[in-house]
Design a protein around this nucleic acid. Structure first.
Length: 506
RNA sequence: GGCGCCGUAGCCAAGUGGUAAGGCAGAGGUCUGCAAAACCUCCAUCACCGGUUCGACUCCGGUCGGCGCCUCCA
């Protein structure tokens, strides 16, 4: 079996054939760093993360580039509002983006080129397009790409089959267009005073100005790929659906006109939107939820990723509290099982039934993922394995190495387990490791938890130990009282089958 | 106006021309001092109307409803 992916260019799912296997070049459109990225953005980045992880699991050597857009209208506007340069505006938001990425357990790309670091390459690209005659300088001194002189234009978004309505989205400001054809797009915008003021203007042979939006991706993708592997065609280019037109369409035009290749990328992948109460999450609608909002609410990234993974990446996903709660609970259950399995000895050879489970999990998970990253089905395989695995554990079977490996592989690709899977265990004697005898008798047991997380856990374990002791002595009222007391402080106590107890922060 | 997507149980969500994965919630059990966890059982006929077919949720046509894109939005 090989991985099959839906290609927006052909509108079909096709077997993925790298140009130079096992090498795979992956270019994904990153954030514009004028603000915090919202979870709609991160849904896309998470889908790309799953894509990359699965390709790597399948043995591909992935070279992943994600650009950071640090020069465009929004950057300039934001910089002017804060009286800083676009470069200064970008720094904190890039840092925030990386922090959010780490929170969501998205693997770092190999390269995060900033548009402003590639101005020289972009200028060279524009110069080349001018010399090739597919670009021209308009009346406003900006440089435009001529659609007319690039007949292949419009293949990705099927432009030939539709008619464009001028400014149908109402998003175009009153830009005067000094273009020969309404569909021509800008490669290089001549400098305006506000560009100069925010540090967004560069000298170029064809006039001082700044790059058009689409230009950076072509310049950086081609530049880095050439440097890395000497190639000028990408294996996969991915982004969200709103980039199909015009962004990716224009990238193709620029890039192919420059390289002379028939394709800029062999596979184009686009993720659907995340909506909030049914409408697209967008800064312009004000219905924004950021990753850090969730983090501050104490939502584990595993739950967020499970929520994302329950819907196929090409389907719209409506973000609701109820859906998030469901994902939290599911993630918790998977984590519970993983924790149970981890607490069994890995030394034991494991039982046959677990080997059968392993075979099924491996096969079902891979089949689902190979089928255009069908994460909902892949999760079903994971949940099946957890259920059946729990049943085997209940029956006293021990997990085999094959099963552990299969589980770890699957769990690693989707990353839907909670970060904290295991509750610490306190022994049946009622004494946690390191607990002194005096403490066990309660002389200096504090009734308020320490603020330090490590000490707090020791504190909770101490009380859990006292509860076990009370239970052993059949003083159930005391045992119940301690459990309620710990619950008040956010700790859950659980009795295990073997007479031990565990604590976990709620 | 053009192009396109979607409508499956209380909620979320896969899926196949032959009678519907999985998750959450709910109900009833097993276990348990209690609780939790875990496991077991139960819980849909796939928006509506026509058509094609031996047979459609799955194919075709239409209706209704929701959503996206249409020049710098992930």
């Amino acid at each position: 079996m090989t991985v099959s992916l839906y290609n927006t260019m052909t509108r079909t799912i096709e077997p993925f054939r790298p140009i130079d296997a096992p090498r795979v070049s992956l270019y994904t459109c990153g954030p514009t760093v004028y603000n915090y990225a919202h979870i709609g953005n991160f849904r896309t980045f998470t889908f790309q993360d799953v894509l990359r992880r699965w390709l790597e699991t399948r043995g591909h050597d992935v070279f992943h580039v994600m650009n950071l857009t640090d020069v465009d209208d929004k950057m300039i506007k934001g910089a002017l509002a804060k009286q800083v340069s676009i470069g200064e505006l970008a720094v904190p938001f890039i840092e925030a983006f990386f922090a959010d990425r780490d929170y969501l357990r998205i693997q770092p790309a190999h390269e995060y080129p900033r548009a402003t670091d590639f101005v020289a390459q972009m200028i060279a690209l524009v110069a080349d397009l001018l010399s090739k005659g597919v670009a021209y300088i308009g009346d406003d001194a900006s440089v435009y790409f001529s659609i007319e002189r690039f007949p292949a234009y419009g293949r990705l978004s099927r432009l030939d089959t539709r008619e464009l309505r001028a400014n149908a989205s109402g998003r175009v400001t009153a830009d005067e267009y000094a273009k020969e054809d309404a569909r021509d797009f800008v490669l290089w915008k001549s400098a305006r005073p506000e560009d100069e003021q925010s540090g967004a203007a560069w000298d170029a042979p064809f006039g001082r100005g700044r790059p058009g939006w689409h230009l950076e991706c072509s310049a950086m993708a081609l530049g880095l790929l050439k440097e890395k592997w000497g190639r000028d065609v990408l294996d996969i280019h991915a982004g969200a659906v709103d980039l199909v037109f015009p962004h990716h369409e224009d990238e193709i035009a620029q890039s192919c006109a420059h390289t002379g290749q028939p394709e800029f990328a062999n596979v184009w992948m686009h993720g659907e939107f995340l909506t909030m109460s049914g409408t697209k999450m967008s800064k312009r609608f004000g219905n924004i939820l950021t990753a850090r909002d969730l983090q501050e609410e104490g939502v584990d990234a595993g739950a967020v990723r499970l929520l994302f993974a329950t819907t196929h990446y090409r389907q719209a996903l409506d973000f609701t509290d109820q859906a998030l709660d469901a994902a939290r609970e599911g993630s918790r259950r998977l984590g519970e099982f993983a924790g149970r399995m981890a607490s069994t000895s890995a030394e034991e050879p494991g039982s046959g039934p677990f080997d059968e489970l392993a075979a099924r999990l491996t096969e079902d998970f891979a089949a689902a993922m190979d089928d255009d990253l069908n994460t909902p089905r892949a999760l079903a395989a994971l949940f099946d394995a957890a259920r059946d695995g729990n049943r085997l554990l209940d029956g006293g079977e021990s997990p085999s190495k094959a099963f552990r490996d299969s589980w770890d592989t699957a769990a690693d690709v989707v990353q839907v387990l909670p970060a904290r899977t295991r509750a610490r265990v306190v022994a049946a004697t009622g004494l946690a490791a390191g607990t002194s005898k005096a403490e066990a008798h309660g002389e200096d047991a504090s009734t308020t938890p320490p603020s330090d997380p490590v000490e707090a856990e020791a504190w909770a374990l101490h009380w859990a130990g006292r509860r076990v002791a009370a239970k052993t002595a059949k003083i159930f009222a005391e045992a119940d009282r301690i459990r309620a007391f710990l619950a008040e402080h956010g700790w859950e106590v659980r009795d295990n089958r073997d007479g031990t107890a565990s604590v976990q922060r709620k």
